[in-house]
């Protein structure tokens, strides 16, 4: 039976992890490879590395980092942040990334999805969608970390992304992100009913119960989180054991 996936997300600036707690036995919490390996050993099913470097120098460091991650980590990993052309994606593939995630650049230029999927396959491209529900109850797609609203609407954009070749959709509700109050499960369930590709839920998890809900009622295939793992609030082994006890298929 296909397992639900648990995916820690690491933000990287200038080659170093941005958030991070003091894991016991970990020499350098700032080292993305060491932290990634720690998560992998704990049972993470995949890793996502997002480059938030603002400088050219920082981006160069990131692509070197991707090659090092590929050498040392033996589970799949996705990289994102600042990918705006198919060439950017191709360079990351060559460096050893299993998938790339595109967000704002795909909203700006939807053809980018076709181009990446056409060249490297749908399995290589995850389209990340950040959306905020407005007062009229409409999910408005946003870019630049939720700061910029667009003309697009969540469901139609997700369907378009799928039709253009996206292999997975990573959806973050900007109403819930950072609140630790749970996910909008009805919205996730509707996405699942409208799409035939896997959906990764992100943004809002504060408890094991939240994650269990989005993987069952929300019908998400995977849950991605950052701070609950980085700050040790819910260690991955504890989370997976708890999901297993609730009858959710996970890799233990």
């Amino acid at each position: 039976m296909l397992a639900k996936r648990i995916i820690p997300c690491l933000d990287i600036r200038d080659g170093q992890t941005v958030k991070g707690i003091h894991f016991e036995g970990l020499q350098n919490v700032g080292d993305p490879v060491e932290l990634g390996r720690r998560y992998a050993d704990e049972g993470a099913d995949e890793l996502v590395y997002l480059d938030i470097s603002a400088t050219v120098e920082g981006r160069k460091t990131f692509s070197e980092l991707v090659a090092r991650i590929a050498r040392e980590i033996d589970i799949p990993f996705t990289v994102g942040g600042g990918i705006s052309t198919a060439e950017d994606a191709g360079a990351l593939l060559l460096a050893g990334a299993d998938k790339v995630t595109v967000n704002s650049a795909a909203v700006r230029d939807p053809g980018l999805i076709d181009e990446i999927a056409g060249r490297y396959g749908s399995q290589f491209i995850v389209v990340a969608v950040d959306a905020r529900m407005d007062d009229a109850g409409r999910w408005v797609v946003t870019t630049h970390g939720g700061r910029t609203p667009t003309e697009r609407e969540l469901f139609s954009w997700a369907r378009e992304a799928q039709e253009r070749g996206a292999g997975e959709i990573l959806f973050t509700s900007m109403n819930h992100d950072g609140t630790k109050s749970g996910y909008p499960c009805e919205t996730f369930a509707r996405l699942a009913s409208e799409l035939s590709i896997p959906i990764i839920a992100s943004g809002g998890a504060g408890t094991v119960e939240h994650i269990a809900e989005v993987l069952t009622a929300g019908r998400a295939d995977a849950a991605l989180a950052a701070s609950i793992f980085h700050y040790g609030e819910i260690p991955i082994p504890v989370l997976k054991r708890a999901l297993h006890e609730r009858g959710i298929a996970v890799r233990l």
Binding site: M1, L2, A3, E168, A192, E194, P198, D221
Partner: peptide, 18 residues
């Protein structure tokens, strides 16, 4: 066989299976 969206199987088969 992916079938119709929603009710059918998600294709590609991506992830950890036993």
């Amino acid at each position: 066989f992916s079938g119709s969206a929603g009710g059918g199987l998600k294709v590609p088969h991506v992830g950890w299976n036993s």
